[in-house]
């Protein structure tokens, strides 16, 4: 069921929500959290789709805050709020309100959102793009226990990591960090199997992918060993090599879905390490709502302490197949054409 409200207020939206719930015959509220998505019109559809998929695991009230740019000076001075209330099948397992803000109210989005939050339940704010530099002190971010950013979508992902570290407040988290959860658990499990000391680590991944930096910082922070980065054509992270007293441990994923785990003295093993959809990332992120101390510690290690990444991946001296060499050429192409960065990244993300 969908109810359209034009030039409305939060109190009318609340009434529409109750009406909608009654109309579809489920007036009880079993939702566990409020997810606020702050985005522009361009990214709203994909973000909302991801959130609705995630709501199968976490029934939630989803508020999509879309700040509409004003076309004329007159539009900038008038202020208007339009809302689209969706309940039932159209809204996953929860309720969805799409809020479109015009004019002056754009700067007061928190006044629209506050009355629509579920009582008592935790609040999560997610910026799929254009996250504020200091999420915790953003008027909308201040309403939330958990603030989800995505440095992967930023213009300068690596620089963004540094400002995230400077502005970190407990409750901040980033989808680039969520993306490496399977890598972290696989590497930790591998180290649990052997009783050797790690001497150095190398992380390979595509350029402009902050997940590489986060994984490298996490390893450096936890193992207290030198960690180098090397560029590869991707997609995403392609490999981690840990040199230990008793030989290397290598986790290698060339195609973005199936990885090979190599531990010295043991047979090679296949590991499913598929690059995940945003919906899965959000669902994982919503599973824990307490501050992520491991993320804080890794983030605060500091990108600058990692040093510059080594350029061609073939210099690492690893015997790689021909596919790897082909990829290196593509990486060089990408570097020659930085203007195409965003487009290239989006293609790689799929």
């Amino acid at each position: 069921m969908k109810i359209d409200l034009t030039d409305t207020t939060s109190s009318k939206i609340n009434k529409a929500l109750v009406k909608g719930r009654r109309a579809i015959g489920t007036p009880a509220v079993g939702m566990v959290l409020t997810l606020v998505i702050v985005t522009d019109e361009e990214n709203a559809y994909d973000s909302l789709k991801a959130a609705n998929d995630a709501s199968r695991e976490h029934p939630s009230r989803t508020l999509v805050v879309i700040k509409r740019a004003a076309r004329s000076p007159r539009d900038r001075t008038t202020s208007r709020l339009d809302a689209e209330v969706r309940v039932g099948v159209e809204a996953g397992t929860g309720e969805t309100v799409v809020l479109r803000l015009y004019g002056e109210v754009i700067d007061h989005a928190q006044s629209v959102v506050l009355p629509l939050l579920l009582p008592d339940a935790p609040v999560v704010v997610w910026w799929p793009v254009n996250a504020p530099l200091d999420p915790a002190n953003d008027p909308l971010g201040a309403l939330a226990q958990r603030r989800v950013t995505d440095t992967y979508a930023a213009e300068d992902p690596i620089g963004e990591l540094t400002s995230r570290a400077a502005a970190y407040h407990p409750g901040d988290t980033d989808l680039s960090w969520t993306r490496i959860t399977p890598w972290r658990s696989m590497l930790a499990a591998a180290l649990d199997q052997i009783a050797c000391k790690v001497q150095s680590v190398q992380v390979d991944g595509e350029e402009f992918n902050p997940s590489c930096e986060l994984l490298a910082m996490w390893l450096a922070d936890r193992l207290d060993v030198p960690v180098k980065r090397a560029l590869s054509p991707g997609p995403g992270l392609t490999g981690v090599r840990m040199e230990t007293d008793c030989g290397p441990i290598v986790l290698d994923r060339a195609d973005g879905s199936l990885a090979t785990l190599h531990i010295e003295g043991q047979p090679n093993r296949a590991v499913a390490l598929k690059r995940r959809e945003t919906a899965e990332l959000i669902a994982e992120e919503l599973r824990r709502l307490d501050p992520d101390d491991t993320y804080a510690s890794a983030l605060k290690y500091g990108v600058e302490r990692l040093g510059e990444p080594a350029a061609p991946v073939t210099e690492t001296g690893r015997d790689k197949d021909a596919e790897q060499g082909k990829g290196a050429d593509e990486a060089a192409d990408a570097k020659k054409a930085p203007a195409k960065k965003t487009a290239a990244k989006k293609a790689a993300a799929k």
């Binding site: 007036p27 009880a28 079993g30 709502l289």
Partner: peptide, 12 residues
């Protein structure tokens, strides 16, 4: 462990 709610609504 997280808070959940059980709801009784007059309308229902």
């Amino acid at each position: 462990i997280r808070d959940v709610s059980m709801d009784f609504a007059y309308g229902e």
